Amino acid sequence: MFIKEAVRKLIYHERRSSKSYIQHLRDKGASIGNGCEIFNPETVTIDGTRPWLITIGNNVQITRGVTILTHGYDWYVLKGVYGEVLGSGGGVTIGSNVFVGMYATILKGVHIGNNVIIGANSLVNKNIPDNCVAAGNPCKVIMSLDEYYKKRKSAQLTEAKELAQLYIERYGKEPDEKAFHEFFWLFSDANDKLPECWSSMMKLGENYAYTMERFRENKKQFKNMNDFLNKIKMEDNQ
């Protein structure tokens, strides 16, 4: 492990880990809150030319290949025609509890609100309000966060069934707890002792107390994971 970390440090320098990259950006003048994560930081580009123009809130997840720009170089073409040097810069603000999907690009001058999901490959060239899901090129709001919550909640059972069926088909055995690390609310509640891979999901972010409060209210659809798997197998045999 030590050798692996040393090699990453040698190759990627400040981008060797999420923690080191975030600290590097803070040292340069960017404002970044708590609980943020930059996945695959060696693939992420966060504009270092004017780091003081970058403001990122708490619990922001930035995924592979994301680009955040606070300047443009379009003035070079204008200079070639009109002879003038014209500045091109603008602050980028990302609120709290935001997920930025893979290979999204956020341009200068953009403000993204709180509780926002930005879809993969989006080009964010205008402000995005609070509490919504936005995607596309150019990026636009496609639904409210409340609508997306209801959509995802209604899809839990269908997706868990497909996950189980394809796992059994592919590996010839039943899936273990790790395979259901995001679906365990279907067959668990506060009366159950959770395996570590499920318990760790409950602790993500900074709202563990609220998550436990909701978990105590959870009405599981199956007695346990084995009950769920048995019913899936019965359906397949009918």
Score class of each variant (00 low, 15 high):
Asp236Leu: 12
Tyr149Ser: 13
Thr63Val: 03
Val60Asp: 02
Lys193Leu: 05
Ser17Gln: 09
Tyr103Met: 09
Gly101Ser: 09
Lys151His: 11
Gln165Thr: 11
Val44Phe: 03
Val60Leu: 08
Ser199Gly: 12
Tyr148Lys: 10
Asn131Ala: 10
Tyr210Ala: 12
Gly109Cys: 08
Glu169Asp: 14
Gly91Arg: 07
Ala30Lys: 04
Leu25Asp: 00
Ala155Gln: 14
Val116Ala: 02
Arg8Met: 09
Tyr73His: 07
Ser96Asn: 10
Glu162His: 13
Gln221Ser: 04
Phe39Ile: 10
Thr49Ser: 10
Lys4Gly: 09
Glu182His: 14
Asp176Ala: 12
Gly95Pro: 02
Asn224Pro: 07
Lys219Cys: 03
Asp189Phe: 11
Asn226Ala: 06
Glu14Asp: 13
Tyr171Val: 08
Met234Glu: 11
Arg15Ser: 07
Asn59Ile: 00
Ser17Met: 08
Val110Thr: 04
Asn58Met: 07
Gln165Val: 11
Glu169Trp: 07
Lys219Thr: 08
Gln156Gly: 05
Leu229Ala: 03
Tyr12Cys: 10
Ile142Asp: 03
Asp47Thr: 07
Leu86Glu: 15
Leu25Ala: 05
Ile32Pro: 01
Lys9Phe: 03
Tyr12Pro: 05
Ser17Val: 12
Val77Thr: 08
Ile142Trp: 06
Tyr12Glu: 11
Tyr149Phe: 14
Met1Arg: 07
Gln238Ser: 08
Ser122Thr: 03
Asp47Cys: 04
Arg64Lys: 11
Phe183Gln: 11
Ser199Thr: 09
Tyr21Pro: 02
Glu42Pro: 03
Asn97Trp: 06
Trp52Pro: 00
Met1Gly: 12
Thr45Ala: 05
Leu204Asp: 15
Ala155Lys: 13
Asn121Phe: 11
Thr93Arg: 01
Tyr103Gly: 02
Tyr82Thr: 07
Phe187Gly: 01
Asn207Leu: 13
Trp185Leu: 12
Glu84Leu: 13
Lys219Pro: 01
Leu78Ile: 09
Gly95Gln: 03
Cys139Gly: 06
Lys231Cys: 00
Leu78Val: 04
His13Thr: 14
Asp189Glu: 12
Tyr167Arg: 08
Asp236Glu: 13
Gly87Phe: 02
Leu163His: 05
Glu162Thr: 13
Asp189Asn: 15
Gly33Phe: 06
Phe228Asn: 02
Asn127Leu: 00
Gly35Phe: 04
Trp52Gly: 11
Phe228Pro: 01
Leu204Phe: 15
Lys19Leu: 14
Pro138Leu: 07
Phe183Asp: 14
Glu42Ile: 05
Asn191Ala: 13
Gln61Leu: 06
Phe99Trp: 12
Asn137Lys: 07
Met202Ala: 14
Cys139Trp: 03
Val81Thr: 09
Gln61Ile: 06
Thr43Asp: 01
Phe222Leu: 02
Ile46Arg: 02
Asn230Phe: 01
Ile46Phe: 10
Ala209Thr: 12
Gln23Leu: 14
His71Leu: 05
Arg64Tyr: 09
